[in-house]
């Protein structure tokens, strides 16, 4: 808990960027490129506090991960978030089995977000795999990465490819499905990650929540506008925190825009651990964040209240995922 506020990290990854992930027959360019992109990003935006003992963003040790999240920071719960980018990866960028291992390493505090791809694996397999991940692994949510390679991408509003997934999610008791939106993780085109396809899906499945990661950057305005129109769309912040230190004014304006038009009850904290393992930096940043007077005056953004911070740090994501935060506090001995 941070000053009495429950902290639920919506995006913790156990990704694997190792050469072992290079798919047979592939030149490995995409795996290596993303590895160097992430390392560059960390060097640019994340180097605060002491350097990690090891290069931690790839295949992290689970005991170390638990220590960084739950001993060395005020994090109370986390979602181990799979990244189903398969095309050039042997087991997917964020393999479900690694996410599952992390969830099982601390089942009271870590929930599993699985992942499938109906275009890459075929719809029937994706549906079966969703069911396996929920029933056998205990996944409570699914993350989607909708572009694998040329000719292999899909939209969330596709009635043939996507709607059976949402029907299956509801059948399995999933409350929220999540999407990587915006910046592509390798060489794919950015327009494949526009948030626009979430609109019909959110309208046609009002009983299901749709989480959009990364504010859809660079489609931030579209993402916020779309989320403002649908009560079942949640904005999941990762990368906002990472970019905040580089561009504080711009990031405050983005958060202000989201607070103004969507509201804090659908904005969710996520660290992208273990890109930068010292996540307490992010938690402290949000807990102490103030909206500058100039931004309030010129753009109409609200002051950032404690109630807003409580929502962003944990309440909003828990609500969207259907997790009873008060029961969790009791289970974890926090009250």
């Amino acid at each position: 808990m941070k000053d009495g506020m429950f902290v639920f990290d919506a995006a913790v990854h156990t990704q694997d960027f190792g050469d072992n992930q290079i798919k047979p027959g592939s030149d490995g360019r995409r795996v290596k490129l993303l590895r160097s992109q992430i390392a560059g990003f960390i060097n640019l935006t994340g180097r605060r506090g002491p350097p990690p003992e090891t290069e931690t963003f790839s295949n992290p040790d689970l005991a170390w991960g638990n220590k960084m999240l739950f001993d060395n920071s005020d994090t109370d719960m986390a979602s181990a978030c799979s990244v189903p980018l398969f095309s050039h990866w042997r087991a997917g960028l964020g393999p479900v089995e690694l996410s599952d291992a992390f969830a099982k390493s601390n089942p009271k505090r870590v929930v599993l977000t699985g992942g499938v791809d109906p275009a890459y694996h075929g719809l029937d397999f994706a549906l079966e795999e969703m069911e396996r991940q929920v029933k056998e692994l205990g996944a409570v949510s699914m993350k989607f990465y909708q572009y694998q390679r040329r000719g292999c991408s899909w939209r969330a509003d596709d009635r043939d490819i996507a709607y059976p997934l949402w029907e299956k999610a509801i059948e399995l008791g999933i409350k929220m499905v999540q999407f990587h939106k915006g910046f592509p993780l390798e060489l794919g085109p950015v327009e494949a990650f526009k948030p626009n396809d979430i609109q019909y899906a959110a309208a046609d499945f009002p009983e299901l929540n749709f989480g959009i990661h990364h504010l859809g950057d660079p489609y931030v305005d579209e993402t916020i506008s779309i989320a403002s129109r649908f009560d079942n769309i949640y904005l999941i912040l990762p990368l906002w925190f990472n970019q905040y230190y580089l561009q504080p004014w711009k990031m405050l304006a983005r958060l202000g825009e989201a607070l103004l038009y969507v509201g804090a009850d659908r904005i969710c904290y996520g660290s992208e651990a273990f890109i930068w393992p010292h996540v307490q930096t992010y938690i402290d940043t949000l807990a102490n964040l103030e909206m500058p007077e100039e931004l309030q005056e010129r753009y109409g953004y609200p002051e950032i209240t404690r109630e807003m911070k409580e929502n962003i740090l944990g309440k909003a994501f828990a609500r969207g995922m259907g997790i009873d935060i008060e029961a969790k506090k009791i289970e974890l001995g926090l009250v």
Binding site: L259, L260, Y261, G263, M291, Q296, E297, G300, Y301, P302, E303
Partner: peptide
């Protein structure tokens, strides 16, 4: 409750 603009903005 749906209006999230700052009180200063609303006053302006």
């Amino acid at each position: 409750e749906q209006v999230n603009a700052s009180i200063k903005t609303l006053d302006r």
